[in-house]
Amino acid sequence: MDIKLEMPLFYRCPFGLRLEIGPATLGVWKDRDNFIYNEDYFDIARQRAVAIFESAFVPTDRISMVLQIYAYGRQKIHRSNYLFRQIKAVDAKVIKYSTRGDLYVEDRTNNRERWRRVTISQLQTRDIAYENLLHAMVNQDFSNRTPSLSGQLFFLNHDKQIVLNLYDDRGMDVVSLTRQPLEPLYQRHNTWILDRNREQIENRFNE
């Protein structure tokens, strides 16, 4: 699939949806002074993330997952990572590690700064506990919430030619090189399109 896995995906692909996950009308905090979270916010964020995912992926779709982390020095993605524990029969899957030094930066002279990437392929959607993974990504910016998964996680649907990235608790990008795979999601989840991107998205889907 010829989609470059760099955030923000929405601005790097010809067709995409940018959808609101955590509702801005609620907000993260119930009592910020006492560090009490608004659990309704997180419940809705998880529910929306799962609903969109299940609109884009069915159990038998052939998929891959890519996790990349910003690393300095020898930091790596280890097999103890939460990601691996959410995959059935993970040892039977194809797991490939790679290192990239050219993501998001113009100065590529510092050889100690790298993006570590693991790509897990030969999966079907039913092989992964995607609800747990989406929950972990919703929590990633809140160090005292569990489960949590650090880094950038991309779900690649090879059958539908779609890439999905829950970039944080606020939003999710779903992209493709063509409009057709995204049409059902555009219709079904139209009310969740982020307001600041709505005009751009509607122009693209209605042109």
Rank of each mutant, 00 (worst) to 15 (best):
S98H: 05
R48N: 01
D107W: 11
M137F: 05
D31I: 06
N203C: 07
S176M: 09
L67G: 03
L149H: 01
R74K: 11
I128V: 13
K4C: 08
Q161S: 15
L177E: 13
D61I: 00
D33G: 12
H158Y: 15
V163P: 01
Q180F: 10
Y104S: 14
M7C: 14
T191K: 13
I3R: 10
L177S: 11
I120K: 01
Q86H: 02
Q75W: 12
L9F: 04
Y11W: 13
K96D: 13
V58Y: 11
L123F: 09
A49P: 09
T125I: 00
I77A: 07
T25Y: 14
D169S: 02
R12N: 11
E39G: 06
T146G: 04
T109W: 07
F53P: 00
C13M: 09
A45G: 05
W192K: 06
F142S: 05
S98E: 09
Y37M: 15
F84C: 03
R170S: 09
Q187R: 15
N206E: 15
E39T: 09
F35G: 05
H158M: 10
D43Y: 13
N190C: 10
V105M: 12
L153V: 09
R85N: 15
T25L: 15
M172P: 05
G22R: 00
L149K: 03
D159K: 02
N132S: 11
Q161L: 15
Y130V: 05
G22Q: 04
R188P: 00
A56C: 07
R18W: 04
D33F: 08
T178H: 10
V28S: 03
D40W: 12
V163T: 09
V174Q: 03
R62P: 00
S143R: 10
I21K: 01
P23S: 13
P181A: 07
